[in-house]
Simulated scan of single mutants.
Amino acid sequence: MQKGKCKSCQVPISFQYPLVELTTGILSALAVYQFGISAQSGFYLLFAYALIALFVIDSKHQLLSMLLLCHCCG
C-alpha cells in the first residue's frame, strides 16, 4: 500500500488526482448508461474529458478566463 504517497519519491499525492479519476469514471458510466456504447457516447465522453482537463488546469493556473477576456475585448 502506498498510503497516499508517490511510490518513487514518497511525495504525498494531491486529493485532486483521485477526485478527477472518480469524476471521470462517474461521467463515463453515466454516458454509457444514457447512450449505450455508441459514437454518440464517445463524442460526449471526449467532450466531457476535455472540459474536465480544462477545469483542472484553470483551477490551478487561472489562465482561461484571461485568455477569453483578452480574446473577447480585442
Results as ranks from 00 to 15, higher is better:
residue 30 L to Y: 12
residue 19 L to F: 08
residue 37 I to W: 15
residue 2 Q to C: 04
residue 26 I to N: 06
residue 70 C to V: 10
residue 74 G to T: 01
residue 66 M to L: 09
residue 16 Q to Y: 04
residue 9 C to N: 07
residue 65 S to W: 01
residue 20 V to H: 12
residue 68 L to A: 06
residue 39 A to E: 09
residue 33 Y to K: 04
residue 59 S to Q: 05
residue 38 S to F: 07
residue 38 S to C: 08
residue 49 Y to C: 13
residue 55 F to P: 00
residue 7 K to Q: 05
residue 57 I to F: 14
residue 30 L to Q: 04
residue 16 Q to V: 08
residue 42 G to C: 10
residue 10 Q to C: 11
residue 53 A to D: 05
residue 32 V to G: 01
residue 21 E to D: 14
residue 35 F to D: 04
residue 46 L to P: 00
residue 46 L to H: 02
residue 21 E to V: 12
residue 47 F to A: 15
residue 39 A to K: 06
residue 52 I to D: 07
residue 8 S to Q: 08
residue 18 P to D: 14
residue 46 L to K: 02
residue 68 L to I: 09
residue 72 C to S: 14
residue 56 V to M: 07
residue 9 C to I: 10
residue 41 S to G: 09
residue 29 A to S: 04
residue 63 L to V: 13
residue 8 S to K: 11
residue 46 L to E: 05
residue 41 S to L: 08
residue 7 K to H: 07
residue 49 Y to W: 08
residue 5 K to R: 13
residue 53 A to L: 11
residue 43 F to A: 13
residue 28 S to Q: 05
residue 20 V to L: 10
residue 24 T to P: 05
residue 48 A to D: 13
residue 71 H to V: 06
residue 4 G to T: 10
residue 33 Y to E: 01
residue 22 L to M: 15
residue 59 S to F: 03
residue 23 T to P: 03
residue 21 E to P: 01
residue 21 E to A: 13
residue 3 K to H: 11
residue 18 P to T: 13
residue 48 A to N: 08
residue 43 F to G: 07
residue 70 C to P: 00
residue 62 Q to L: 10
residue 4 G to R: 05
residue 4 G to K: 04
residue 38 S to P: 07
residue 44 Y to F: 15
residue 28 S to E: 04
residue 6 C to I: 01
residue 11 V to S: 03
residue 47 F to V: 15
residue 37 I to V: 15
residue 26 I to L: 15
residue 46 L to Q: 08
residue 72 C to W: 15
residue 8 S to M: 06
residue 50 A to C: 10
residue 51 L to P: 01
residue 25 G to N: 09
residue 21 E to I: 10
